[in-house]
Write a protein that binds this DNA or RNA. Structure first.
Length: 466
RNA sequence: GCCCUUAUCGUCUAGCCCGGUCAGGACAUCUCCCUUUCACGGAGGUAACUUGAGUUCGAAUCUCAAUAAGGGCGCCA
């Protein structure tokens, strides 16, 4: 049994797509599951771009998701170089080999791969995808024997190529199909795990393997990730399509990774949220699904929330505090102890870190924006202004804002006026925070302090007249 | 147009290989309980085998077809 070698071969384009991330993840998982080797190879044949910056996007995103590679950029390996831009001489040599044995030829300045089989010249008409124009084109159809793709996920797939294809462009650049196969052979890749969009192209690749006299690797074509709504696969313009978006929105990387695993694969028991070690132990290519999966932002958010809740207090504080600074709510002058108290009070109620600033804004800003929806909801069964009117003088008379003192006041008022105790909570919460939800009311009052609470209740009442 | 792949609740899916289940779980949604506030939590509800043939005593499960969805047919990767 030879050692498993998987690879992820991204092209540095400046962003890291969620589909690419999952492909990388499945390659990584399978290598880790089998104790094999995970290779990272950069397909940067398009040298015109700023590859250093674009490369960093990929490397950083991979690391952010907790993926490491055994061979590739920055770590090296025995089968390098791992940048296609540095392997051009090697490709030339392999193309030479194909030409020497008659499997490649030059035409129109480009180099074509020659299929084996009977040939006939045919004319086909088809609509151009972008312009919609009908194009007539003459080409040489080859009746090549079908190629068998033995796919771990799809099973046996048969497909025949019917025309020669370009392997080196007229500008001298080798094309994807060629370099992909040549590198996979050179790097001794045993399992090619990639998106199903490559399944049809696999017949080209197998033809190349055969021409080189090499046994093809095992293939595993994983399902695609589709848009939440509408048709087609996730494109970079779709919300949630880019890994950088999750970084910016302060998703927890382990949560993103966990959710990604759930798209096209399911753990054996009913537990969906599980540590990566357990996923590695369970993951197997044979269990990967065949049908495409639709991306669901809400479930992603749920998984993230679960990971957030499971975070130890210190870790949460460590993550949350800088986010408040980023949002401009706190700065060097803000009392550190106060920040800690706010975070401690709100931690268990926070659903996501990107909404954390708006969730605690009122602790740091004096002007409170009243949530109209919350106001309307409360007003349905209660008169928030009347309740605050009643509370205002009483709050002013309170000696302190300890929980017991505040509770006693609520109790006294509700008994005197024959109003439900809870009818005081929501109006007061709205007046001091502007929101319909949040942490324990008593905690809010205690942290804000008497002065601010009184001022905000007054401001709330003043807002009624306008 | 040609080729390849796929098809279970709104979404992710279990079950399919080796026919007999009240077709299970999760997200979302709704109801109730807990909490005299917020949320978590707990209990429950609504909700699916694409259609049509065939094989069979019996089909989500096996076969075929139709339909639908996705992908590929570039001197993109």
């Amino acid at each position: 049994m030879t050692e498993v070698r998987t690879r992820f071969a991204p092209s540095p384009t400046g962003f890291f797509h969620i589909g690419s991330a999952r492909t990388a993840l499945f390659n990584w998982l399978y290598a880790r599951h089998t104790g094999g080797t995970f290779v990272l190879r950069i397909e940067d044949t398009d040298t015109a771009r700023n590859t250093k910056e674009f490369l960093d996007v990929i490397l950083e995103s991979m690391r952010w998701l907790g993926m490491d590679w055994d061979e590739g950029p920055e770590v090296g390996g025995d089968y390098g170089p791992y940048f296609q831009s540095q392997r051009k001489d090697f490709y030339k040599q392999k193309v030479r080999e194909l030409m020497d044995c008659g499997r490649a030829y030059e035409k129109d300045g480009a180099i074509w791969f020659r299929l084996e089989g009977e040939r006939e010249t045919v004319t086909e008409t088809y609509k151009d995808g972008s312009t919609g124009e009908t194009i007539c084109k003459e080409f040489e159809r080859v009746h090549a024997a079908p190629v068998v793709i033995d796919d771990i996920i799809r099973g046996r797939v048969e497909r025949a190529e019917d025309r020669d294809f370009v392997i080196v462009r007229s500008n001298g650049e080798p094309v994807f199909h060629l370099v992909n196969v040549v590198d996979d052979i050179a790097m001794k890749i045993t399992h090619v795990i990639r998106g199903e969009d490559h399944l049809s192209n696999t017949s080209k690749h197998i033809e190349l393997y055969k021409a080189f006299g090499v046994e093809p690797p095992k293939f595993a074509h994983i399902p695609l990730i589709l848009k939440t709504e509408g048709s087609g696969k996730m494109s970079k313009r779709d919300r949630g399509a880019l890994i950088e978006e999750y970084q910016q929105r302060h998703f927890l990387p382990a949560a993103v990774r966990n959710y990604l695993c759930l798209l096209g694969w399911t753990p054996k028991d009913d537990k969906e949220i599980l540590p990566i070690e357990e996923i590695i132990a369970q993951f197997d290519l044979a269990d990967v699904h065949q049908a495409n999966a639709r991306f669901d932002e809400r479930k992603m958010a749920f998984v993230n929330q679960e990971y957030l809740r499971a975070l130890p207090d210190e870790s949460f504080t460590w993550l949350a505090a800088p986010i408040l600074g980023e949002a401009g709510l706190v700065n060097d002058k803000t009392d550190e102890d106060y920040i800690q108290k706010v975070i401690a009070l709100t931690k268990e109620k926070v659903a996501a870190l990107d909404t954390f600033p708006s969730f605690v804004r009122y602790f740091f800003e004096d002007s409170v924006a009243i949530d109209e929806k919350a106001l309307a909801k409360i007003s349905k069964k209660n008169d928030p202004y009347a309740r605050c009117e009643e509370l205002l003088p009483e709050l002013a008379n309170l000696p302190d804002f300890e929980d017991a003192t505040v509770d006693a006041l609520f109790g006294k008022l509700s008994a005197e006026r024959g109003i439900k105790l809870s009818d005081y909570y929501a109006p007061l919460r709205l007046a001091v925070s502007g929101l319909g939800g949040g942490p324990h009311l008593q905690g809010i009052l205690r942290l804000l302090g008497k002065e601010k609470v009184i001022a905000r209740v007054k401001a709330f009442l003043a807002g009624k007249k306008s």
